[in-house]
């Protein structure tokens, strides 16, 4: 079954037309830019990376949401 699925995708990609290859090239470049460049270097998940526990995250959000009340 798994082999059949593998062959299905393998044959499909192997017989791609020139336009199909061009599209897959664009998809791969796009995904590389998005995940390996933009996500890694420009889009840190601030709450995940700056803080190590939910308690710290709650405190940070509290400071931002309740300014002057802390």
């Amino acid at each position: 079954m798994l082999r059949k699925i593998w062959n299905f995708y393998y044959e499909g990609f192997r017989n791609l037309s020139a336009d199909g290859r061009k599209l897959w090239f664009i998809i791969l470049i796009k995904l590389f830019i998005m995940f390996a460049v933009l996500k890694v270097f420009f889009f840190p998940d601030i709450l995940k990376e700056k803080f190590h526990s939910d308690r710290e995250r709650i405190q940070y959000v509290e400071q931002n949401l309740l300014p002057g009340n802390q």
Partner: peptide
């Protein structure tokens, strides 16, 4: 997916809330 990247970086207070 880029919109989700933005939630985590630019809109962290919102993401938590």
């Amino acid at each position: 997916i880029i919109l989700e990247f933005e939630f985590g970086t630019n809109w962290s207070n919102y993401s938590w809330f």
